[in-house]
Amino acid sequence: MMSVPRYWREIPERTRFEGARCTACGNTLFPPRMKCPKCGSEALEKYKLPQKGKLMTYTIVRSPPKGFEKMTPYVLGMVKLDDGTIVTVQITDVQPNQVSIGMQVESVFRKISEDGESGIIEYALKFRPIF
């Protein structure tokens, strides 16, 4: 079970795709950190990640973690966004066997999971192929 504040704290990252950009070297970070891992600068600004990219690698999950049984099999991927930032996300709106490396994808707002009958329903971005 996820507490409400724990979900709520990450809303900017999960639903608005807010990362950080280093004003010293231009590196982008997701999730945000205290310092730029490339140049060590602490001068980071809030930065909205691009919503399109290319599928870099993926897997078809057949043995899911708790809470994801209903959607199995599903596709989990790493997407290289148009600015080069890489994110781990679910790939949706496509049959698993139709997914391929290099595919163009875009973000879409979706339900991720629900904590049983009385817990919260968690939403975030997934990515779908651009056809």
Partner: peptide, 19 residues
């Protein structure tokens, strides 16, 4: 918050590496 939340598990993360 940024891997497990999206339905990753230890094996699926490594599967993406292997692929």
């Amino acid at each position: 918050e940024f891997e497990l939340f999206y339905g990753s598990s230890f094996v699926s993360l490594n599967a993406m590496l292997m692929n």
